[in-house]
Design a protein around this nucleic acid. Sequence first.
DNA 1: GTCTATAACGGGATAGAC
DNA 2: GTCTATCCCGTTATAGAC
Lengths: 222, 222
Amino acid sequence: MSDRRTAILEAAATVIARRGVRGLRVEELAVEAGVSKALIYYHFEDRTGLLRRTLTFVNNRAERYTAEQSAVDATTDPGAATGAAPTSGPLRQLEQALLLELQDLPHVRENSTAWGELRASAVFDPELRGELALASVIWVREVADQLGEVRPTAPESALVASAERLTALLEGLSARWLSGILPLTDARTRMREAIGVEVAHLAGHTADRSADGTPTSPNKLD
Amino acid sequence: MSDRRTAILEAAATVIARRGVRGLRVEELAVEAGVSKALIYYHFEDRTGLLRRTLTFVNNRAERYTAEQSAVDATTDPGAATGAAPTSGPLRQLEQALLLELQDLPHVRENSTAWGELRASAVFDPELRGELALASVIWVREVADQLGEVRPTAPESALVASAERLTALLEGLSARWLSGILPLTDARTRMREAIGVEVAHLAGHTADRSADGTPTSPNKLD
DNA sequence: GTCTATAACGGGATAGAC
DNA sequence: GTCTATCCCGTTATAGAC
């Protein structure tokens, strides 16, 4: 809504990505947003309130660019060239969605960094947990749905479990990338492999459901 | 070595686990360690230097309790009762080693929290990256070796890739657990499943090498 | 709504005695 | 090696004019 307000939130994401949550200085934020310090306190209760709002803001923005990218996907399709990956429709879409977070583009890096920072902050600041948990659940749900399109016969519980593993892995890889432990290309490769592994795993689940909906074999991996 | 010095490091891990790196106050640390602020600056260059030392300290301590636990493993073996998990020797050892980090015991939680915090800090403080990267490489190496014992014929590169995925996943799950997004039991379940999935995946790799006396069935789920 | 100026204080770092 | 006392800067947050 308000011009200035969103400008402050954009700036907050930028500054957090640059300095981290612990490094965010209200003064620097004010300069970045082109407003005065006092205005920040006028619009947001206090520093923590600002962080909370920034969390949801960053999250909304991520959904937005995910949607944009999905639109682009229809156009680009290099899946034919490489014999490596079985890039059929829904699977490719899933890969795109997850790999989107592992890119060295300014706003993606900004989002990933801010997200990681805010998640880390939530360990010690319970006030941030509400937004965080909600966003996480939604994200897992989305990934589970996409997995469901790749493996329509896999049981719901297995889809959610796979989605939780994939999203948690993505966060882990992202943290390593951003902290300079793991090169970006490696992170992307690991992520792609993991998707393949999980999809293969879900195929196994599919096989289990021989007749109706009831898994007959007591598989060890539930 | 020095009594006081290690006391400070122990206290640092405790305080970081309680307040986070951003919440670590040299004063509080001094109280926790039962020393004066000045002594901390005498033993460690400055705040960052202290953090760097704490990072390696925490890491060494983790190795230590991993070793202790491995010793205990020989005694305890409930693998026979439950038909759920294929807890053969090396596989069980691997599971133990990884699940060790997902336990609600004071010193484990302390280590995990401190490790997560320091990793998060490294995103913005390059001074911390050296220790971090080294520790990470060593850990991946260890897990890869353990995977190698479970799947002796799997190629080295596949073992390392799996190890990287598993350790990154563990960090991701740990972060979610500690930030209150994911219940501990869920995190543990996801981790166990992932190990199963990865081991099954490596079995596939094994099948690829048809010549060297390995069962040729390319079954994904063993 | 938005600014400038300033209060109020927390906390990192050092001096110097013992 | 370890302490007490203190400096002083950076940072959050508010007061009050426009």
